[in-house]
Amino acid sequence: MKRTLLTAGILLATSTAPALAYIDPITGSIVLQALIGGFAAAMVAIRGVRDRVLGLFGLNKAQTADDQAES
């Protein structure tokens, strides 16, 4: 709460420019990567297993995991 108020204060004090100009877009991207990286590692691993299993039955298409997941 304190931090939010502090941020709001900074934004208000410098509000001659659009508020977004004071937000560093890279920071959020960096902080989040540990989380996203965990999911990504799991997804890559699942795909690897799936490819191997399909490969056993000769069903391994040259297609990506997401190709099927998204469709």
Partner: peptide, 22 residues
């Protein structure tokens, strides 16, 4: 990206470590 402000985020970004495998 939209929510993180540099004031809040910079400390966390410096502290954040990403394992190589990730």
């Amino acid at each position: 990206v939209i929510r993180e402000s540099s004031e809040i985020g910079r400390d966390r970004a410096q502290a954040a470590r990403l394992p190589k495998a990730r």
